[in-house]
Simulated assay, not measured.
Amino acid sequence: MPRPRKGRRVCCLPGSNLFGPLDAGFNQSDFVIMSVDEYESIRLIDLQEFTQEECAEQMHIARTTVQRTYNDARKKLAESLVNGKFLRIEGGDYELCNGIEKTCACGGCRKHRCDNFNNDNTRQITDD
């Protein structure tokens, strides 16, 4: 019996989950599906400039898993761009960050996005 897959920690879901050419119609064969955990690896490594080790720590997975996930995501991005296919982000084995861990360093979870929340997640009142 295989070992169950460990859920990868993701700080936030993408704002848009469908990208593609503006001049094409929708055809099911024109879609490339990227999982949410693959999206997170691209976001952390390319946008946030994390190393693969930092990304692995952030996502709570092994560095070799990050490397494989990141390579799969890059291949899907390339296929979408070069072949003019739609890219849809959905599914995968992930769990959303709850924003209360002290190790969260990406700035993507609610705790780090909103300065108006304190440690017990209650709204602070300011005199602005």
Rank of each mutant, 00 (worst) to 15 (best):
M1C: 00
M1W: 00
M1K: 04
M1P: 00
P2C: 04
P2G: 11
R3H: 12
G7L: 15
G7V: 05
G7T: 07
R8Y: 15
V10N: 02
V10H: 01
C11E: 06
C12S: 14
C12A: 14
C12V: 07
C12L: 12
C12G: 07
L13I: 05
L18V: 13
G20C: 02
G20P: 02
L22C: 07
D23I: 11
D23F: 12
G25K: 02
G25A: 06
Q28A: 13
Q28T: 13
Q28G: 05
Q28K: 09
S29G: 06
D30H: 10
F31P: 07
F31K: 08
F31I: 14
M34C: 13
M34Q: 08
S35F: 11
V36D: 04
D37A: 12
Y39R: 01
E40C: 05
S41C: 14
S41R: 10
R43D: 01
L44H: 00
I45Y: 00
D46M: 05
D46H: 05
F50S: 03
T51I: 15
T51K: 14
T51P: 14
E54S: 15
E54P: 13
E57I: 06
E57M: 08
E57W: 07
Q58N: 02
Q58V: 00
M59G: 05
I61P: 01
I61Y: 01
A62L: 14
A62Q: 15
T64C: 11
V66H: 04
V66D: 00
R68F: 04
T69F: 07
T69L: 13
N71S: 14
N71V: 04
N71H: 13
D72E: 13
A73T: 03
A73G: 04
A73M: 04
R74K: 13
A78C: 10
S80C: 12
V82P: 03
N83F: 08
G84V: 07
K85V: 11
K85M: 04
K85T: 09
F86E: 04
L87S: 07
I89W: 01
I89R: 02
I89P: 00
I89L: 09
E90A: 06
G92I: 11
G92C: 12
Y94T: 09
L96P: 08
C97G: 09
N98H: 08
G99S: 10
G99C: 08
A105M: 15
A105E: 14
A105V: 12
A105R: 08
C106P: 02
G108C: 08
G108R: 02
G108F: 03
G108E: 08
G108D: 04
R110H: 03
R110E: 00
R110D: 05
H112P: 00
R113H: 06
C114N: 13
D115G: 12
N116L: 08
F117Y: 09
F117P: 04
N118Y: 07
D120T: 04
N121D: 05
T122A: 02
T122Q: 12
D127Q: 14
D127E: 09
